[in-house]
Each structure stands twice: as C-alpha cells, then as structure tokens.
Design a protein around this nucleic acid. Structure first.
Lengths: 309, 309
DNA sequence: GTCGGGCTGGAAAACGCTTTCGTCATTGGG
DNA sequence: CCCAATGACGAAAGCGTTTTCCAGCCCGAC
C-alpha cells in the first residue's frame, strides 16, 4: 500500500483498488501506537480570548498543517496551578508541545521543560542553562522604544498601566521602565496596576486622569483601546490632551480613532517560527539559536508632543 | 489500578505505589486503540483569524476541557475544496467533529455529514432531512432588526456591504434584505460586494460615499470598523453624516468611537452549546432541537436619525 | 472427608497497524 | 544439472492497553 518494499506492481494496484473500493485507510490511532508518533503537536495558551495568542495559534496551525501535522489546543485559563498538569497530560497525546507565555515560576518551568521534552517556548524565556528553543519578542526593547518616542516628543510625566504580574513579558516591561528611568533623571513615570483587557483599560481612565501625566503607556493594545474608549467618553482628546501608546500591534490597532501608536510584535510569525523549531526538534535536528523579534515602533495617531499648559 | 474489579486492597495499594514510583500512567494512545475512543473532538473553522470563530473555539474548548475532552483544531483557510478532505482526515483521529460555518455547497455538506457521523454544525444549517445537531444564530432576524432600527430612525436609503458569497450567513442576510424591501416599498438598499475583514470595510469607504445612502449596514463588525476608520480619515462624522451598523458584537465593538451599533451573536455560547450537543451525541443521547440564537440589537453610538440635508 | 461455589489473580485475546522473519519459487552460475 | 543467491509474499511478533477467560484457592455445606 505505502509505496515501499519490493512488491509486484500488479498486485500493488489490485490492493490499492480494493482499498479504494472498501473505502479503507489505515487507522491513525493504530499507526501512532506502533510508530510511536502521533503527527500531532499541542499548544498550551493561558487564555484563548487573547488576540496575541490567536496570532500565535494561527501561525503555528498553519505551519503544522502544511507538513501534515495536527494541532491540539489547551487553554489553561490563566491558572498557574493547572498549567503543569494540563501540559503534562496533553503532552502524552502528541509528539511535542508548545508553551505560549506560561505563567508559572521559572523553577517550575525549568523542571517542566525537562519532562515535556520536545517542547518550544513562545513569548517567554526559560532562564539560563536550558536547551529548549525559544521564540519571543524583546519586550524590553519594545517598551524602551515607546518610551524614547514619547520622551523625544517632549513628555516628561507618564503613566504605565501594568499587566499580569505573573506574565514574564510584564516583568520585561517593568525592567525597561527601570532602565529608562535610570537614564533619564528628569522623567517621572507612575506605574498603575491595571490588567490585560479592554475592560481593565477602560476602568483605569479615572486613575490615569488623576495624575499629571501627559502620556500613558498601556500594557498592551487592548488596554490602550479600552482607555481610549473611556477617554473619548469623558471628552478627553487624544493625542492633544493625552498621548496613549499600546503594545503588540493587534490587527485592530490601526483602526482605532485615531490609529494607535504601538510596538508591533509579529505574532503570526512567532507561531510560524515556533513550528519550525518544533519541526526540527521532531526530526532530531538542532533547533537553532533562540529567536528574538525586536518589536517595530509604529508611530500612529495617538501620540504627539504634549500641548503647553 | 483503575478502582474497578474486586482486587485485594493491599495489592492495589502496592500497585499504585509502584506506578507512582515509576511515574507510570497508562498510554492514552493504547487506551484509545482498545477502547475505541480518543476523548478528543475536532473543530474545523474556515479561518482562525476571524474573531467570531475565536469565540466559538473558546466556548467549545472550555466545555470540552471541563469534561476531560481534548480539542483538535483544523483551519481550512477558506478553501472550499480542502474543507472536505480536512474534515474527513481530522475526524479519524477523534470521536466527533464540529464544523463551524462550512463553506461548501449544501449537497456536499449533506453527504459529508453522514460520513463524519458524530458531528455538530455551528453557524450553518444543514438543510432539511438531516438529524445533525445545529447551533446557530438567526442572521436573518438579526439583520432585519438592524434594518428596522435604521428605518425607524428615518433612513430610507442604505447600503449593504456584503460578505463572502460562499458563507451561508451571508445568504441569510441577503434574504433579510429581500424580505425587508418587500415590506417597505419606500426604501432603497444598494448591495455592494465587500468582504469580511477590516481591510475590506476600509477599502469600501469611497464606494459607500459615492452613493446617496444615509446609513450603511456592514456584513460584520470587522467591516464596520474598517469603514469607520476610513470615514474618520476622510472627515466624515458618524453618526451625524452617516450611520454605520455592524454584526456579531465582537468584543471590540463597544470600544470603537463612537461605540458600534450592532446585532449581538453570543459566539462563546454558540461554542458551549455546540459542545453540549456533541457531548450528548458521544453518549448516544438525543441531541435535542436545533438551537437558534436570536441576535440582540445593540443600539450604540454609530447610528442615529439622518440629519436633514 | 469430599465436593461445589464464590473470589482472586494471572494469562490470553483483541484493538489495527508496522516490521521482521521465514518460506518458497525463480533464476543464474558453476 | 545442481546449488546458491535473489526476490516476492505471507506469517508472526510487537506496540500498550482493556477485557475476557481460566485456574486456583478458600470456605462452607453435605
């Protein structure tokens, strides 16, 4: 049947014809069992509702599909405790697993990676001394780029709307903030705990307006858009009265009014590259260096020099 | 090991201890083979980039996860030809399959459903004489609601930005248009071919402005948002100069400026209910009547009575 | 004391494949 | 003309489970 082996062609033809007629094809299950491979990879995401993860999922699914692989999804629902169990359990049904932005502590992650073996990490690094392939974005550089942009526009008083403290990318952003403040003594940045969704940004409007800031750096585009929406309701004009920048450059970002200034993370490409790494791993090839995308600063309509008081 | 059978408790304890020690747990693959069930269901979507499908996927994944089921995703990339093969192939690796808004012709769909057997249909009906459970929204009623809203506001000249002609939901919308026009002789609605994404709506702006319409009904929220964005760039005020309504009520809809008037389709619930249907099917229970959600008209800021010339 | 019944635990069959092994026939060379 | 080598095909083993089946064993009853 499967093209191999030295079999008389006429017999092979008859077999194939019979298979066709009986509508037969080999059971993937049984094949998997004997072959020891399922032709399936899994993706674990913290929240299926997040557009960032959609992009990664799409890129990954696309790449995998291309090469005959299937993809299993698992949503940990932001639960740090379930993350591990979910990953381990899911891992058993496939050949490898992609962890997207896992929330767990670094020690736990390290231990887990060993257990999961063919595994690649997206949007999170594994700390030192790991051989796990990593595909991520340089959140620190991205945020720094946004801060520089605002600084160059003349902003000296800003607010940072921070995201999920569990999220590694939030930690990187905080680090960028620290570095920036070290370099620029004349700037004040207040960090406000916020969140990662529309509603979080929306709800943060009053707290933001209570400060003297002329610019706000949102954890991500979702938060920025929520804030934009609330500001518009309050009659605060953007960017005249307040500059707002986001992060990620989700598809919606360029369609806000005004279009959102943000740092572009190529999420689909993150997913595609994660698949490439996984593919190499599955073929026992070296997966290559960690891949770090540098977010591109997209200057659009929500940022401008502060207007004189 | 598995709690069953009459086995001496002390022995059972020893076995469990050994299993623990060896870090053993039964191979899901081998179990699946012998049990004839994989504890996995698949979802086939036409485009993983579409927020509507995200919602369905989320609802479904959540429900399935709750009951120990895994979910396999397959993206047909809007290819009508691949849809069938993808579904059949994917189906073999799981216990049942959910088809979300399949694009294929009704005849083909009917034939496919029989082959896929435990199958549920989302956002598309199967035509008559099928026993397949269906979970969908009443797109016709939704669009009719929007048209009535605009009519009651005084609009008599409108544009409909139509979506993918392959999509069944587009057909239903067109039917609503026909019905509406039959009832209201004094209304003119022009249908413009458009698409389903931001960019499509954005690109349609000039064509829309070339008409005399005072209101535009976009195929969905994405299209409406793209249009909104282009209108804002051209200095056209919404809703003063032009009313715009969308469809779906994606999470972003309420955060546009002004917030988008739309017909709300509860996508997550669509997914959850699809899972419930699937669950019943898997347990050989009757799946119940087709479930049709009636979209709720969300009157927000992008629609208003037309201003006098 | 012997026989039958109810448990328990281990062996074997089955799930549907792939791969290896062995057999038989065919052919070429000595 | 015989032997060995080659090659085609079928049989069997093994993948890791669950389920069925069978052989014991202990106990109670006659």
């Amino acid at each position: 049947m499967n093209g191999k082996r030295s079999v008389d062609e006429s017999l092979a033809v008859r077999v194939r014809a019979a298979a066709e007629e009986l509508n037969y094809s080999a059971s993937p299950l049984a094949r998997s069992l004997v072959l020891g491979k399922t032709n399936t990879v899994a993706v674990v995401v913290p929240d299926l509702g997040n557009p960032t993860f959609h992009g990664v999922l799409r890129g990954l699914s696309h790449g995998a599909g291309e090469q005959g692989y299937h993809v299993l999804i698992a949503d940990s629902a932001e639960s740090v405790t379930d993350e591990r169990i979910l990953a381990v359990e899911t891992r058993r049904r496939c050949d490898g697993i992609v962890l997207v932005s896992p929330r767990m502590a670094e020690d736990d992650l390290q231990a887990l990676l060993a257990e999961l073996d063919p595994v690649v990490l997206v949007s999170r690094d594994a700390g030192a001394s790991t051989t796990t392939p990593v595909v991520t974005a340089d959140y620190e550089a991205g945020l720094r780029g946004l801060l520089d942009l605002l600084f160059d526009d003349g902003h000296r008083s800003m607010v940072f709307l921070s995201g999920n403290p569990q999220s590694a990318s939030n930690v990187r952003r905080l680090a960028a903030l620290d570095g920036f403040l070290r370099d620029r003594a004349d700037v004040a940045i207040e960090t406000l705990p916020c969140g990662v969704n529309f509603a979080d940004g929306y709800d943060a409007a009053d707290a933001v307006l209570a400060t003297a800031a002329t610019a706000v750096v949102a954890f991500n585009d979702l938060v920025a858009m929520g804030l934009l929406s609330a500001l518009s309701e309050r009659g605060v004009t953007v960017p005249q009265q307040l500059s707002v920048v986001g992060f990620d450059d989700i598809p919606f970002a360029r369609y806000t009014t005004p279009p959102l200034t943000t740092a572009a993370v190529p999420v689909t490409e993150l997913g595609e590259q994660a698949w490439r790494r996984m593919w190499r791993l599955l073929n026992r090839e070296p997966a290559g260096e960690p891949l770090v995308f540098r977010p591109a600063i997209e200057r659009r309509g929500t940022s401008a020099p502060p207007s004189p008081r």
